[in-house]
Simulated scan of single mutants.
Amino acid sequence: MLRDDAAVRTGATFRLSGDQGGSAATVTRLLGLEPTHSFEAGDRVGRRSAAIRRVSLWMLSSDLPSDRELADHLHLLLDRLEPKAEALWQLTTQGYVADWFCLAASQATEHAIELDRPLLQRLLAVPGDLLLDVMGDDD
């Protein structure tokens, strides 16, 4: 639930999954960036779960407050990832799957999410489909 003074809750995470056997440790080593979260194929899904992860996952999330605009989260991540674009494209040719997972939750009050052309151009320079999870944030 959103605070009374917040009209929108947003966030963004860049994700690389090793769908063809690649590891999260390889991504960290190649990029020279510490992920926000990472999981390896073969890890247990949770401490108490018997389920085993089938693929690795490397995630870099924006650490901006959730009441900031979605574009702010994306710009922050792009500032860190654009210098690594060549390595990111190389990882996708090795079978890693990239995406940008974005959240936009809004109360009943209207809130438009703006992704301007310069931001979209920046996103195109780095691999990954843009996934938008847009939802209401009411009771």
Results as ranks from 00 to 15, higher is better:
residue 3 R to S: 09
residue 6 A to D: 12
residue 7 A to G: 11
residue 7 A to V: 01
residue 12 A to Y: 06
residue 12 A to E: 10
residue 13 T to H: 00
residue 13 T to V: 09
residue 13 T to F: 00
residue 15 R to P: 03
residue 18 G to M: 00
residue 22 G to R: 05
residue 23 S to P: 02
residue 25 A to F: 02
residue 29 R to A: 06
residue 30 L to I: 10
residue 33 L to Q: 03
residue 34 E to C: 02
residue 34 E to R: 07
residue 36 T to E: 01
residue 38 S to G: 04
residue 39 F to D: 09
residue 40 E to T: 01
residue 42 G to S: 05
residue 44 R to H: 09
residue 47 R to C: 00
residue 47 R to Y: 03
residue 48 R to C: 02
residue 50 A to D: 12
residue 51 A to Y: 05
residue 52 I to D: 06
residue 53 R to Q: 09
residue 59 M to Y: 04
residue 61 S to Q: 13
residue 61 S to P: 02
residue 66 S to Q: 08
residue 69 E to P: 04
residue 71 A to Y: 14
residue 71 A to H: 06
residue 73 H to V: 10
residue 76 L to G: 12
residue 76 L to S: 04
residue 76 L to H: 09
residue 79 D to W: 07
residue 80 R to P: 14
residue 83 P to R: 04
residue 83 P to K: 08
residue 85 A to T: 06
residue 86 E to L: 03
residue 86 E to K: 01
residue 87 A to F: 03
residue 87 A to I: 00
residue 89 W to Q: 12
residue 89 W to N: 12
residue 90 Q to L: 10
residue 93 T to P: 00
residue 97 V to N: 07
residue 99 D to N: 15
residue 101 F to C: 02
residue 102 C to P: 07
residue 103 L to R: 07
residue 104 A to H: 15
residue 107 Q to M: 08
residue 108 A to R: 13
residue 109 T to M: 09
residue 109 T to V: 09
residue 111 H to V: 15
residue 112 A to C: 02
residue 112 A to W: 12
residue 114 E to M: 05
residue 115 L to H: 06
residue 117 R to D: 04
residue 120 L to V: 13
residue 122 R to L: 05
residue 123 L to H: 05
residue 123 L to W: 09
residue 126 V to Y: 10
residue 127 P to Q: 14
residue 128 G to Y: 08
residue 128 G to N: 10
residue 131 L to D: 13
residue 131 L to H: 07
residue 132 L to G: 11
residue 132 L to C: 04
residue 133 D to R: 12
residue 134 V to S: 03
residue 136 G to K: 05
residue 137 D to N: 10
residue 137 D to K: 06
residue 137 D to Q: 11
residue 138 D to F: 05
residue 138 D to G: 12
residue 138 D to S: 06
